[in-house]
């Protein structure tokens, strides 16, 4: 019994030792895997938080402008502070007249605005397809001189109605290009920016009656 007990103890001791050794062998890779997973999950959360912070700030800016400001200026602030461009313009679109009307701009010369008001290939494609257009190799050849520096032509769409386009030209020098969060902000502006513009226009029209 004693011997058996000892043997069992020795065996257990040996087993524990073996497990320990195995455990020590396994631990670094398991720990590394766990740490990598933790970092990846944390990164995902931070990524989402970063986006939601910016979407919330954009939404709050537009809401405040709807109440006591100019929605176009609020959209400009989003483009400047969150996306990173100080060259932008908003054109309202009059479907019946097939005309663009400049509603707001920053960093664009009067001559360039005049040319853009006639509508460019990129602007017509934006309202024709109802989809935001980005500059790429395919459309680079078709760009007119007034839209050479164009980064994106964002459709502003309230429901099925196209309210206008937001043109974003050169990005700030410290920006290497559009990032994932910028595309999400464009999507936000496509819908909520457009609804806010339409609301403000209707209010102005109602006040003028």
């Amino acid at each position: 019994m004693i011997g058996g007990g000892n043997g069992s103890r020795i065996l257990r001791k040996n087993m524990v030792t073996k497990n320990d050794i195995d455990g020590k062998r396994r631990l670094p890779s398991e720990e590394l895997r766990a740490r990598t997973q933790l970092l990846s999950l944390r990164e995902q959360l931070e990524h989402n938080h970063f986006l939601l912070e910016r979407l919330y700030a954009a939404s709050a800016g537009i809401m405040q402008a709807v109440e006591d400001g100019d929605v176009h200026v609020a959209i400009g602030e989003i483009v400047s502070n969150l996306i990173g461009s100080e060259e932008a313009a908003i054109f309202h679109y009059r479907k019946a007249a097939r005309r663009f009307l400049n509603a707001w701009s920053v960093g664009i010369s009067d001559e360039q605005l005049r040319q853009l008001s006639d509508g460019t290939s990129m602007m017509w494609r934006t309202v024709g397809e109802g989809v935001t257009q980005f500059r790429d190799r395919q459309n680079e050849l078709q760009l007119q001189s007034c839209e050479q520096n164009l980064t994106a032509s964002v459709v502003l769409k309230s429901g099925h109605e196209i309210v206008g386009v937001l043109l974003v030209f050169g990005l700030l020098p410290q920006k290497n290009g559009l990032e994932w969060v910028d595309h999400q902000l464009f999507k936000f502006l496509e819908t909520y920016g457009a609804v806010a513009i339409q609301l403000q226009l209707l209010r102005k029209n109602a006040a003028a009656l």
């Binding site: 938080h49 912070e53 800016g61 405040q64 602030e77 502070n81």
Partner: peptide, 15 residues
């Protein structure tokens, strides 16, 4: 002067 910028900065610090 931009309320959007103030809000973003405020959120970064407060969160």
């Amino acid at each position: 002067d931009s309320c959007t910028a103030r809000l973003v900065n405020r959120m970064i610090f407060s969160q």
